Amino acid sequence: KLPPGWEKRMSRSSGRVYYFNHITNASQWERPSGNSSSG
Rank of each mutant, 00 (worst) to 15 (best):
K8Y: 06
W6A: 00
S27G: 06
W29Q: 06
A26M: 14
S14V: 06
E30L: 05
R9L: 07
H22P: 08
E7V: 11
G5L: 02
Y19H: 00
S36K: 10
L2Q: 02
F20D: 02
S27M: 15
R12W: 05
G39Y: 04
M10S: 08
F20A: 01
V17C: 14
S11A: 10
E30D: 08
N25Q: 14
S27H: 13
H22A: 11
K8E: 13
S14M: 07
A26L: 13
G15V: 03
I23Y: 11
G15W: 01
S38D: 12
I23Q: 07
I23E: 10
S38M: 12
S36W: 06
Y19P: 03
K1I: 14
S37I: 12
S36F: 08
S11N: 09
A26N: 09
S14N: 10
N35G: 11
Q28H: 03
P3T: 02
K1N: 14
S14R: 06
N21L: 01
R9A: 04
S27L: 15
S37N: 12
P4V: 08
Y18T: 01
S37Q: 12
M10F: 15
S33A: 11
W6N: 00
S33E: 12
S38R: 09
I23V: 10
Y18V: 02
P32W: 01
H22Q: 10
S27I: 15
G39F: 05
S13I: 14
K8D: 02
V17D: 09
R9M: 06
N25Y: 08
P32S: 01
G39S: 12
M10L: 13
F20E: 04
G15T: 03
R16K: 13
S13D: 10
P4H: 09
S14E: 08
S38P: 13
G34M: 14
P32I: 01
G39P: 13
G5R: 01
Q28Y: 04
S38I: 12
R16G: 04
G5T: 02
W6S: 00
T24D: 05
S36I: 10
K8L: 14
S14C: 11
S27E: 05
K1P: 15
T24A: 03
W29T: 07
K1F: 13
S38T: 13
R12G: 09
N21G: 00
